[in-house]
Design a binder for these strands. Sequence first.
DNA 1: ACGCTGACTATTA
DNA 2: CTAATAGCCAGCG
Length: 128
Amino acid sequence: MARSSTNTKINTITPAGNREKDFFQLVYEVVRQIPKGRVSSYGAIAAVLGTRLSARMVGWAMNGAHHIKPKVPAHRVVNRNGMLTGKYHFKTPDEMKELLEKEGIGVKDDQVVNFIEVFWDPSKEGLL
DNA sequence: ACGCTGACTATTA
DNA sequence: CTAATAGCCAGCG
């Protein structure tokens, strides 16, 4: 990544004691911090990274999160509405729902039940 | 090298 | 209330 031409600004964030990492790497880290039985949203993660408007990139990062070294619970990441928008990007669309239910998260009609209750805000918990 | 699309979100009509 | 539009950045044709 980082083609660099006239941009490159997302890597300027470094919030007190945080190392500069690639946007994707940061996303993976935050997603990995999501506790079991909780879910997060692209916007929340993007906001922590300082790119609230670039929530799409978070989803793009998830696209490669399937084959990276540490395990990235991408199934715990849903959109702002709590809808499993990326379920079709998994090996099987049902896997995301199954995983969420297995963790104790109710999923109804491709949407997280009690999304507000199970929602986990990384910035509120205090990331590393 | 240019243009479109995309696992999103917020704002405006 | 719902629908449409703009903004973001990176990958792919």
